[in-house]
Structure formats: structure tokens, C-alpha cells
């Protein structure tokens, strides 16, 4: 059952220099046991020109390595310029596209496409609507519980959509019109000087008493903890999940993907996997609370006691 579960690499949320971005994906293409790789800018339209020049060679390398490429699109579309970026992408039609806003899904109507985790699909009725619109794969929102995920899988059985959940990486919790990276540096979004490039894994945000809480990435706010569903894979596979998404961190994502693949294939035990993952992300705290229907920041399930 677990062997059949596919692995995707989600879009990179952070602002990496183009060379680093390109080399990251070259290595992913050559070495990572992934079925699908998402490219594109989801967080801030101002960053898109930075990577545009290197996208074609990355697509080519990934496809040559037999990996499916999906273009992810903006989560928050406010200006005419941003609207036109998405309109053009949707019109090009030669590459699988992921909609992260309802507007993009509407533009992709009638053609096979992917719905990303920024579109609110919480229930059967909404899922059915997007499937009718042409969605062949849906990555569910981060705060859905395992029970809700199982119900959606059960409801979509027989129909085509492949359901996917984020199984690794800092969780995208919010998007805003305001840029907090700029604000933290006394700047505005319009003259931001691209200060978000100072933090390749996001800017850490702590509470006043020094507890790690969130991570700021420009207009996006992520969890400080790293979501990790490795201990929940059996439950997910049992419910019939068809695909997991690993969300890039500034870490060895090839190794992360290999560990998930090995656990899915039955070649690695959970405790070793968890321990290796922890080493790969520098001891970042892991969380899976949303999956267990509790605070997203918490850790529950079989590996919680190992803390």
C-alpha cells in the first residue's frame, strides 16, 4: 500500500539566489527519488523575475530525469500585473499548472490541473466542485485533520483526483498584503530591497520569553516547527492517500526525500528515519498537531514519546 504512494517536492517558498535555486533543483533532478517537482513563485510576485531566467534549464533537467514538473502559481493575487502573470501561465497550456488561488483554478477550467494547499478545500462538496472543474490532483490545506483527510479520500474514491498532503517542511500558515521582512527592516514592500534573501530558511520569530513560534518569509508566515508526518505514514496510506508533498527547506532535500521513500518502501524503520530527519534540519522541532486534530504546533502520535 505504502509503496504506491508518490512523492512530490513542493515549490520553494524562500528567496534563494538564482544560482543556488538552480543548483538545488539540478541535484534534485539527478538524485532525489521524487515523482514530481513543483517550480515557480508562490509567495511574492516581485521575486519572480529573479528566477525566471533559470527556469527553462531546470525544467529541462528535471524532465530529462523522468520527473513530472508542475508550475505553482501565486497564492495572493492583488494587482493587475499579478493577475496578468497568472493569466499568461494559464493560457500557455503546455505544462501542468497548480492553482493556489480560486482565480487561477477558474482560468484553468476544463483542463487537467493541480489545486495547491492555499485554496480552501475543507469538505466533499468543495472538492467535488474542483474535480468537476478539471482538477486531477489536490494538495489539501495544512489545517485539515487526519479524520477529515480520510473522509475526503473516501468521498473522492472512484473519481479521478489524487489527494496529497504536506508531510514535511515548515507549514505555510498565512499570506498577507504586507511584507513583514520589509517591516522588520524598517522598509515598505515597494522599496523592500529584497531583504528576504537574508534568510534562506525564513526569519525566525520568537515570543517575548524566547520560545520559537513562527517563521517570516516576506508576506508569508510559516510555522517555526517543521511539519513531519513520517510517523503517520501508515495511517495515511491506510486511508488511501496517493501522494505526499515535501516542502523545501534550506537543507539536504535529496536525503529527506530518500528517507521518506525508504520508509514508504519498507526499507527503513521509523525511529531511524525520524532521527536522520532531525539531523538533516539541524534539530528543528517537528510537529504534526494539525493531522491529529490538535494545535498545529504540537507533536502527537507514535513518535511523540521519543521527544
Amino acid at each position: 500500500m505504502m509503496r504506491k504512494v508518490k512523492l512530490s517536492l513542493g515549490p520553494t517558498f524562500f528567496n534563494w539566489p538564482p544560482e543556488k535555486w538552480r543548483d538545488f533543483y539540478f541535484r534534485i533532478a539527478d538524485e532525489a527519488p521524487l515523482d514530481t517537482v513543483h517550480l515557480g513563485e508562490v509567495v511574492c510576485s516581485k521575486r519572480l523575475p529573479l528566477i525566471e531566467a533559470v527556469i527553462p534549464e531546470v525544467v529541462e533537467r528535471l524532465e530529462a530525469a523522468g520527473k513530472e514538473v508542475v508550475v505553482s502559481t501565486l497564492a495572493l493575487i492583488m494587482s493587475k500585473r499579478e493577475m496578468n502573470i497568472v493569466r499568461e501561465l494559464a493560457a500557455s497550456g503546455d505544462i501542468m499548472t497548480e492553482a493556489n488561488d480560486v482565480s487561477t483554478a477558474a482560468l484553468l477550467a476544463g483542463r487537467p490541473h493541480v489545486i495547491g494547499p492555499f485554496v480552501n478545500i475543507y469538505n466533499e462538496g468543495t472538492l467535488a466542485w474542483f474535480v468537476g472543474n478539471g482538477a486531477v490532483r489536490v494538495c489539501l490545506p495544512v489545517e485539515l485533520s487526519g479524520i477529515a483527510i480520510s473522509k475526503l479520500i473516501a468521498a473522492s474514491e472512484g473519481a479521478k483526483p489524487e489527494l496529497e498532503v504536506i508531510a514535511f517542511g515548515r507549514l505555510p500558515l498565512a499570506v498577507s498584503a504586507r511584507c513583514y521582512h520589509a517591516r522588520a527592516n524598517g522598509l515598505h514592500k515597494d522599496n523592500c530591497a529584497y531583504v528576504c534573501d537574508q534568510d534562506p530558511d525564513g526569519m525566525e520569530l520568537e515570543t517575548l520569553d524566547g520560545a520559537p513560534f513562527l517563521t517570516v518569509n516576506g508576506t508569508q508566515t510559516l510555522s517555526h516547527s517543521c511539519c513531519n508526518l513520517i510517523g503517520d505514514l501508515a495511517t495515511l496510506a491506510g486511508a488511501g492517500i496517493r501522494r505526499l508533498r515535501l516542502s523545501p527547506q534550506d537543507a539536504d532535500m535529496v536525503a529527506v526525500a530518500s528517507i521518506f521513500r525508504d520508509v514508504l518502501d519498507g526499507n527503513l524503520d521509523l525511529v531511524t528515519a525520524e532521527c536522520r530527519l532531525s539531523g538533516l534540519v539541524g534539530g528543528m522541532a517537528f510537529s504534526n498537531g494539525f493531522f491529529h486534530g490538535i494545535e498545529g504546533a504540537r507533536k502527537a502520535g507514535p513518535l511523540a514519546a521519543a521527544e
Partner: peptide, 17 residues
């Protein structure tokens, strides 16, 4: 201050969404 209906911050801290 976040785009409405697209914010899981409170849910992340409390489990109530």
C-alpha cells in the same frame, strides 16, 4: 492583517480554527 480565510496562525497555536 493576513488575507482573510487563509490564516492558520490561531489554529496553529490553539487547535481552534
Amino acid at each position: 492583517v493576513m488575507a482573510e480565510g487563509r490564516c492558520a496562525l490561531s489554529s496553529y497555536a490553539t487547535g481552534i480554527s
